[in-house]
């Protein structure tokens, strides 16, 4: 059930992608997302697919594991595709009841579907190969110029802790649901009002537990001398090495090819 969600979970492995500087991975992911909106037609998607495929191969994350992560967005994907199919005006292809599916609609739907899937795979590849701590480190470093307006370190720390506790709270939700079901609670049937009310026995213990965990964690962090970002050193400081520069070159090169293909074709 909830445990099946693999999206965004770090997948430990030793690979060139895992070893890349997380800043490179964030920037590359952004460039990749931009490229998806640049790419047009089969040639464009083929280039993107090839690039993405190479990255997955290099990352040593099993393809099946990545696909499993897509399960979480199947519904979103279906809705997007459906709306594109139905609401794009053009030459009718199939017609039934009051719904008309157009040729342009199908094309649009496939395009959106492919983009969405690539986008999810691309960004989950980043989180799969980067530990949340590295990720927040990178965000902290990338946002450093804004340090005088926003508390960058604190935000980064909060994000990293949130990521650590999401799986724990998911598991806890599962346990609470079972404990209440053992007392005859019903989370599935009934109308909306009843369903919302049936969530109370689930949410109250979950919130109380989350607050207790937060309290415990704050104390544990204090006991380990945490006092904000000041005077803190880093175990894994971010330093660019040659593979990072090579990766930057590769990803900018890829974007260049995408743009070139778009202009030429």
């Amino acid at each position: 059930m909830l445990k099946d969600i693999t999206i965004g979970q770090y997948y430990p492995a030793e690979s060139p992608i895992h070893r890349l500087d997380p800043r490179v991975k964030i920037v590359a992911t952004m460039i990749f997302i931009v490229s998806l909106f640049v790419a047009e037609g089969w040639a464009g998607y083929l280039i993107s697919a090839f690039f993405l495929g190479m990255c997955i191969l290099l990352s040593k994350v099993p393809f099946g594991y990545i696909v499993k992560g897509l399960k979480a967005i199947v519904i979103l994907l279906c809705i997007t595709m459906f709306f594109n199919m139905v609401f794009t005006p053009g030459d009718p292809l199939v017609q039934f009841w009051r719904i008309t599916i157009t040729v342009q609609g199908v094309r649009m739907a496939v395009k959106m579907g492919v983009r969405l899937i690539f986008l999810i795979i691309g960004s989950s590849l980043m989180t799969l190969t980067t530990t949340p701590n590295q990720l927040t480190n990178a965000i902290e470093r990338l946002l450093k110029p804004l340090g005088f307006i926003i508390p960058v370190h604190e935000i980064a720390m909060m994000m990293s802790i949130a990521l650590r506790f999401i799986p724990i709270l998911m598991e806890e939700t599962d346990k609470i649901m079972k404990a209440q079901m053992a007392r005859g609670a019903d989370f599935e049937s009934g109308n909306l009002v009843k369903k919302v009310r049936s969530m109370v026995p689930l949410l109250v213990p979950l919130f109380i537990s989350a607050f207790r965990r937060a309290n415990d964690l704050a104390m544990a962090m204090e006991a380990r001398c945490y006092h904000g970002g000041k005077g803190r050193t880093q175990m894994k400081p971010l330093v660019y090495r040659w593979p990072d520069y090579a990766a930057y070159a590769a990803v900018w090169g890829y974007l260049g090819v995408c743009i070139a293909v778009r202009i030429v074709l």
Binding site: Y10, P12, T131, P132, N133, S160, I161, L163, R164, I168, R212, R213, D216, L217, M219, A220, M221, A223, R224, C225, Y226, H227, G231, R232, T233, Q234, M235, K236, P237
Partner: peptide, 30 residues
């Protein structure tokens, strides 16, 4: 100090990064 609940005192998502958390706070060189 080591506390009772093992889940509520581990900060990082990788074992070694968690062990490094204390020294980082103390400003120990990398």
């Amino acid at each position: 100090m080591v506390f009772q609940n093992p889940d509520n005192q581990i900060i990082a998502t990788v074992v070694e990064e968690d062990v490094g958390f204390g020294p980082e706070n103390l400003g120990v060189p990398t």
